[in-house]
Design a protein around this nucleic acid. Structure first.
Length: 452
RNA sequence: GAGGUUGUAGCUCAGUCGGUUAGAGCGCUAGAUUGUGGUUCUAGAGGUCGCGGGUUCGAGACCCGUCUCCCUCCCCA
């Protein structure tokens, strides 16, 4: 016997939390479907050959690996124990838990590309696992809600994602948010014009932290990462650009020497234009040249959504990637997607008190259990309630009424039908309103329309 | 992966310098009330002091290890 405990970084979700989480899931699902995304589910675990090498060295370490079943030591030799854990891991583990929804999606697209109607739009709402160190708002098991379009490089997809976000978030009650947008090509262009071509990776990691650690620290970090002081000086416009009146014009002047940078600006303007054509009024979109997102596979638009006036920062992120399926041998499939973080959205909604009331009420009416005769009479009523679409239950044991009412009270059951010998004889049941305490004598035919 | 921090009843937490039988509030169970919940009153149950080792006549307290919560960094949703 040992005390039960939760595995590190995991959580239970009780009935109350589940009501709220399901509200989020259903709202998100409805919106995804309204934009033509089709559902997809993939297995919780994949072959490690699918997962490894897709998230960088750090990502490989954060993969939960599944030990081979059976006698996994039988094929090992003495030297396997001394050569370190990395070569050993590949000999005793062949499967791992999914780390995100994008890579399994890419695998699915490659395996089914002959049968999919392209462009393919899919949504996927499933848990993912990371062997990370848990912190506030960060768990080892959490849900992602992804929607991606692959097989087209039309910027309509980007504009639709903006619209989609303006659909989902207000439907959840989150009306004060900002969709920050940037373009990876702009960042590449910046690296070019400051004479640090090819270094946009470290550049992104550093400037992405601007709002968190401030300009000085970013400059410090850039120097550490090997940027020359000339480059850093030339980077100066970045700190003021997003605040300027016409950022795209200023940016165009700055990046006039970089073809790819200019292409990025063009794409941004196109997205803005199409968002307008889709008729979105007062779009909450904002160009942010310092938005970089560390993920290296983005090649075009980058999104991040912030809920305003709350502690919790980003609740959603995404972008365009040109070579999603390249590592599986099928190059040239472009895609763009968005991922919503359910746990953070939950926290934001909790903090702003946005969940609708009465999410937890499951039973509308409970039938009391006074004695054997009343119990049997009550059983005949139960299906009548249920057929009328009223959530109903019968208290299973003949215990004191006090206990039964206490149960109904704690479970937030709105009505209790009390049945004793009087009620059985007259057919007039006692309907008790648990909120007001009121009681009235009514027939079952009168009660049902009252509760439905 | 690096650093810091926490752990005592179901929950939130007291527990003095190392000293007798480890406490409170809330919750729980029963009764006051044999057909009536929430309020009130009374009584009761409930503890491997995270786990393992050590120091000591004596450890909830001190030391070491380990696990866990939370926080910072790295990274991320």
């Amino acid at each position: 016997m040992s005390k039960p405990s939760l595995a590190r970084g995991t959580r239970d979700f009780g009935p109350e939390q589940m009501a709220k989480r399901n509200f989020i899931f259903e709202t998100v699902r409805r919106s995804f479907q309204r934009y033509g995304f089709l559902p997809l589910e993939t297995p919780a675990f994949e072959n490690l050959s699918v997962l490894m090498g897709k998230y960088g060295d750090e990502g490989d370490q954060l993969l939960f690996k599944i030990l081979n079943s059976g006698d996994f030591t039988s094929k090992l030799e003495d030297k396997d124990y001394t050569e370190g854990y990395k070569p050993l891991t590949s000999k005793i583990s062949e499967k791992g838990l999914r780390y995100d929804l994008t890579v399994p999606f890419a695998r699915y697209v490659v395996m089914n590309r002959g049968t999919l109607a392209m462009p393919f739009k899919r949504y996927q709402i499933q848990p993912v696992w990371r062997a990370d160190r848990p912190q506030r708002g960060r768990y080892r098991e959490f849900y992602q809600c992804d929607a991606d379009v692959v097989g087209t490089d039309s910027l309509l997809c980007e504009a639709e994602i903006v619209n989609l976000l303006h659909d989902i978030l207000p439907a959840l009650g989150i009306s004060d948010f900002t969709v920050k947008i940037n373009n990876r090509k702009v960042l590449t262009g910046i690296a070019d014009v400051i004479g640090a071509g090819g270094m946009e990776g470290p550049l992104c990691v550093a400037i992405d932290k601007l709002d968190k650690i401030g300009k000085e620290k970013v400059v410090e970090e850039l120097a550490e990462r090997g940027f020359s002081s000339d480059s850093i000086t030339m980077l100066d416009p970045i700190f003021s650009l997003s605040n300027s009146e016409k950022p795209f014009e200023a940016l165009r002047n700055w990046l006039s020497g970089s073809e790819i940078g200019l292409k990025g600006i063009e794409e941004l303007e196109e997205v803005w234009k199409m968002v307008g054509l889709l008729g979105l009024v007062n779009p909450k979109i904002e160009f942010d040249v310092t938005l970089a997102r560390g993920l290296s596979y983005y090649t075009g638009a980058i999104f991040e959504v912030k809920a305003n006036n709350v502690q919790i920062g980003s609740i959603s992120g995404g972008g365009r990637y040109d070579n999603l399926t390249g590592t599986f041998g099928v190059p040239g499939i472009s895609g763009v997607g968005i991922s919503l973080g359910v746990d953070r959205i939950y926290d934001v909604m909790e903090e702003l008190n946005l969940f609708p009331e009465n999410q937890t009420t499951s039973t509308k009416v409970m039938i009391s259990n006074f004695d054997k005769e009343a119990f049997e009479f009550g059983l005949s009523l139960l299906p009548k309630f249920r057929k009328a679409g009223i959530n109903a239950e019968m208290y299973p044991d003949s215990v004191k009424l006090k206990k039964q009412l206490d149960y109904a009270d704690r479970k937030n059951i709105a009505f209790v039908v009390l049945i004793g010998s009087d009620e059985i004889q007259s057919g007039k049941l006692t309907l008790k309103n648990m909120k007001t305490g009121e009681q009235q004598k009514l027939s079952i035919e009168e009660i049902i329309p009252l509760l439905s």
